[in-house]
Design a protein around this nucleic acid. Sequence first.
DNA 1: GTTATTGCAAACAATTTGCACCCAC
DNA 2: GTGGGTGCAAATTGTTTGCAATAAC
Lengths: 137, 137
Amino acid sequence: MARPDHRRLILETLQKQEQPISAQALFAQLRQQGQTIGLATVYRILSHLRREGLLCCHGQPEGEILYSLAEHHYHYLTCIRCRRMIRLPACPWQEWEKTLKFPEPFQVLYHELQLFGLCHLCQGLPKEVGGSKTPLQ
Amino acid sequence: MARPDHRRLILETLQKQEQPISAQALFAQLRQQGQTIGLATVYRILSHLRREGLLCCHGQPEGEILYSLAEHHYHYLTCIRCRRMIRLPACPWQEWEKTLKFPEPFQVLYHELQLFGLCHLCQGLPKEVGGSKTPLQ
DNA sequence: GTTATTGCAAACAATTTGCACCCAC
DNA sequence: GTGGGTGCAAATTGTTTGCAATAAC
């Protein structure tokens, strides 16, 4: 049997994501598509991609790590109620960088900005809306 | 024996930190001071403090969670070489917020900004400087 | 043959939970 | 007595590693 190109498979799957995705969820998605791939392989490939600088790793305040393609480089509004992540249209860093004063010389290579709060669907709602996962906090 | 006020102990220890600290490191620090406290208690109290909004949780891109007091609310330059975290003098969010356009209504409750790169001590150095931990990435 | 990649299972690390115990009241 | 806080150990979760099997060359 021809060896499947798992690396490309993972890259393509990441392309398709609306929001950053966890390694476990990525694995589940691939399996559901009928792919025979092991969880370890997913982690190994993600690790490679990361070292090559192709991945953004979004460490959530609960320890979960979400991955997205670096070429996208978006920031997200994360709803702490339904966990939906809403992509900002552009990265404001270029502008912001000019206004920042560093206390010592520092070469910024990449950055991570996450905004947490309530999306318009969850504002004013009493309980449990929109997601299977438990709310943050 | 008088019951120790662990909650206060943890708050005071967090006060003293120069940089955000992991739960494990916090536990180790308390034990070294001669305190008899369990790791579970540390986690339980951190969890309480978090729910009360007293804590900032900095999820690192490797999944590690670092804690700091919310009253401080600082941002950090994190050196990917020596892992040193350099505190920015002020939070620029108030200014930046005005310039942001959201794709849908969203109520921002808190935010997380992390800048990664090389500190001036680690720029141009060939290998392993300044820290016991392995470099990031 | 050699080498790199794979799946599985075991190992590992960080965190949470169960539970009996103890202190303050 | 009751109730909340605690330490320890076990359980849980997310990730990494060891290793034999296999495909590409």
